[in-house]
Computed example of a mutant assay.
Amino acid sequence: MPAKRSKTVIVAAPAAAPNPGVALRALRRQRGWTLAEIGARTGLPISTLSKIENGKMSLSFDKLTRIAQGLEVDIGELFSNQPPAGNDAFSGRRSITRAGEGYAIRTENYDHLYPASELLNKRLVPIIAEVRARSLDEFGELIRHSGEEFAMVLEGAIELHTELYAPARLETGDSIYFDSAMGHAYIAAAPGRCRVLAVCSGGEAHLREAMARQDAARYEPPRPSRARREDG
């Protein structure tokens, strides 16, 4: 079995987006809550929340999820300059994401890039993932989340492991549609980069919860965020 690596999560927000720690402080003060009250809502220690607010601690996917759930906001509100939009505001909206844009989350198993990151409460969640794990032992627990999922291999090859079917090998250009409530894992099956476009239904909250359950508790120190590329 390969040795387990420290599971690092790096969030790279667009340059124009607010710092999540700053957003946390603003939302907390807007609600008139203390750090102790946020701690009770999120299960995070006061010292951890203080470090996050002051930019002295890396933001793991698990921490982002707990904060969003504790504050009862969409996770995009920790990164987006847009005010929250109600369900009636969906008509006619659109988002263009240039190559390399979006916000990125790096875990042991995947490098995730989320297009259309400024849109809140999306009904579909598109993800471009570079698959890093090369065995189920390396991947760990299968992921489950509500809804359905479409995946197309963009580069290399992957094996999709599920709890109900034999592993399916997918080459570049191949695609699959499946019930994502079924435990599943993308495994890199070719040398070099293996990338997949996944489009998930069921809402971002369920997807975040599933990723947070699969993520580990140990993280490396924060690294500088990658700025959004400017057009022109």
Rank of each mutant, 00 (worst) to 15 (best):
G102R: 03
L71D: 09
G92V: 11
S47V: 11
R132P: 04
E149K: 13
G55D: 12
L154F: 06
V153G: 05
G86T: 10
I52E: 07
G100F: 09
K51L: 15
Y110H: 10
K56R: 15
Q82N: 15
G70K: 09
A99M: 13
N81C: 13
H145S: 04
G147M: 08
E148W: 08
I67M: 15
G100H: 11
D74I: 03
L119Y: 04
M152N: 01
E148D: 12
F79N: 05
G92E: 05
D88A: 10
F79Q: 04
A85P: 02
H112T: 01
E101K: 03
I67F: 02
G100P: 03
G76H: 05
R93V: 13
A104L: 12
P126F: 02
S117Y: 10
F150L: 14
F139Y: 15
L120F: 01
L142Y: 14
N109S: 12
L136A: 06
N81T: 13
K63V: 10
E141T: 13
Y114Q: 04
S58L: 05
G76M: 02
L154W: 09
D111R: 02
K122Y: 01
L59V: 08
R123Y: 06
R106Y: 01
G100N: 13
P45T: 03
T97D: 06
I105C: 10
L154H: 08
P126C: 05
S47T: 15
E101N: 15
L142D: 01
E118G: 05
P84L: 07
E53G: 09
V131N: 09
F61H: 01
H145L: 06
G70E: 12
G140V: 06
E118M: 14
N54S: 15
I67G: 00
S58H: 05
Y114H: 11
M57W: 04
L64P: 03
A151N: 02
I143N: 05
S146V: 13
N87F: 11
I127H: 01
L124C: 06
D111Y: 00
D111H: 02
L78I: 11
D137T: 14
N121L: 02
I105D: 04
D74V: 02
P83H: 07
Q69K: 09
I75E: 07
S50E: 08
G55C: 09
Y110M: 11
S80T: 14
I96P: 01
P84G: 02
L59S: 03
T65R: 15
L44N: 06
E138H: 11
G92L: 08
D88C: 07
S95I: 12
R66K: 15
V153L: 10
S135R: 03
T97W: 07
L124P: 00
D111W: 00
M152W: 00
G43C: 08
E101S: 15
D62R: 13
R132K: 14
A104N: 07
L119C: 07
A89F: 06
D137P: 00
T107F: 04
